[in-house]
Design a protein around this nucleic acid. Sequence first.
RNA 1: CGGGAUGUAGCGCAGCCUGGUAGCGCACCUGCUUCGGGAGCAGGGGGUCGCACGUUCAAAUCGUGUCAUCCCGACCA
Length: 627
Amino acid sequence: MWGLPVARAKGSSSAREKWFARFRKISLPMRCWKRSNYCKIVNLDICGEILMRYSQFFIPTLKETPADAEVISHQLMLRAGMIRKLAAGIYTYMPMGLRSIRKFEQIVREEMNRAGAIELLMPAVQPAELWIESKRWGQYGKELLRFHDRKDAEFCMGPTHEEVITDIARREVKSYRQMPVNFYQIQTKFRDEIRPRFGLMRGREFIMKDAYSFDVDSAAADLSYDKMYGAYNRIFERCGLNFRAVEADTGSIGGSASHEFMVLASSGEDAIVSCDSCRYAANVEKAEGRIVEAVATGDAAVVKVHTPDRKTIAEVAAFLGLPESGTTKTLVLSNGDGQFVMALVRGDHELNELKLKNRLGWDEIRMATDEEILRFTGSPPGFLGPIGLKEPLQVVADYSLLQMNNLVTGANEVDQHLTGVNQGRDFTPDQYADIRLIGAADPCPRCDNGTLEVWRGIEVGHVFKLGTKYSGALQATYLDKDGKEQVIFMGCYGIGIGRTVAAAIEQNHDDNGIIFPLPIAPFHCSVVAINAQKDEAVMTAAQDIHDRLEAAGVEVLLDDRDERPGVKFKDHDLIGIPLRINVGGKNLAEGKVEFKLRAGGEMLLLPPQEAVDRVIVEVRAALGGGR
RNA sequence: CGGGAUGUAGCGCAGCCUGGUAGCGCACCUGCUUCGGGAGCAGGGGGUCGCACGUUCAAAUCGUGUCAUCCCGACCA
């Protein structure tokens, strides 16, 4: 009940009466409180029960931007009084911020429930044993906040809940008859990020919705995954966000397949590509290169060329009179544990270390040091190539090299390069693989006529097919029809709640402040009473408009403050409530009020009832009619 | 953890180089005027100058250490 954001608790008056009666019984002294205080205390507003007056609410706006806020959403959330920082990466959700958070949570709940998931709530504090059992106690590193209880037992603040939910599953889900099942929670998590930043975008403490599906086999798990994929699309569509679902790397969570849901915003921390022709979209970490046909071997002879002090691709290409795409780039990488590899990509391409790491099955990857490079090649960086190595080194070439002949490579000697190098004749890579970074204008790997575009995105959701990684480690098994023990197939699905609200602001703002998409706005509509202290008719009219809107289930913030009009306008622009009705003396004398969309464009003079109707229409449209 | 920067009133900043009464704007309180895009005038409250140690007759100012915050990098469901 606490979390219900809108007016559906508007229920029958008898139900309401019952509630009030119970309240009176419990705490008599409160009866003499002002109704507004009374309602503030019990959070009744959120059930659409009260008149929300600006003067009685708490919206501490700031005229100036706090110096430590870098990105726009962080600045605006601070200025709009939505959040306040307590410590690095740890924030209080102030009343306005909380309202938006609750709105989004409710959308998530509704769609998760619609997709058949079941809500529960797991502990924030988790015992070390479970993490040791899943082998992540050792893997997780300092990001996992660990501590001891009074008996010196080890615990951590949950950064995620695979272990706990799998523990539940292995105790409670024993039969194929109990599946498929999908549990979710909306809960505060803690990750001790090395560098928290950008306000709610990358906090240490944050609210996340996480869901975990349990299925009898891989095919059934795929169905559960598809359901969540669909639910996620509906969730972000309902919020009115511009987003893409992209193929993604599974990272430390592991598993076989995953998609990230990215809200497009120029400040996004991730780069993603999408095809302009088909539906392919991927994180650049993961984006695939198009498979190409090999060309014939060239007939040029290998010639050693003196290239004094030409170390970079640009310098070598210019010196030889070739385009950068006619050269090759040679890099030496290490797994940090004694293994090394030489990677070859086209001169104008970049290596994607993550793809190479995954290809090699390494846990870590880093560039080799100059000393290590010297050891293997006998040359400092800048003149490296696959021919004439001092010590044997595995060579991985990007597929794009198949389309090249008569290559230019380093000669593994200072100030020397080789031209006319041909694969198969002069050297043979140990393997060809897709290891380069994909970028704008690259051809789509999935369709024939598509070209890739690059976007910046904020990761707000992530879905994984986990397979049996955790269920295997924690022995979460069930009995199938034949009474045989089988390992459960899992999937996990996260949504960053606070981050999504921040991303929505990142995507929807202007110079004056936030422009909330209505479904997650703290209020649907504000009613600004202009100079109401001087003009009782204004206050009465504003109040009446409020009452009519509220009766229709619209969440209204009535600005009854004794402030100058300019101050009120600035505040309302800043806090981003999508709809506004201005009630002023002059217009009112002619039977009109102003109707305005925060997003801009229209400023209509309408009779009060028409303005009210207009607001109701807008709200219904934005909330999708059925609600 | 590596590199860079900053800590002075609730917020934004000056003062520090050249040591000696802690200042400005916004916000806040009182009064009067004002009242359609962050008002004007007058008066007022609020600061262990991040913390510790040191140098000095004297430290916001100089030195050392420490903590915190921010930026870049590495890292990141």
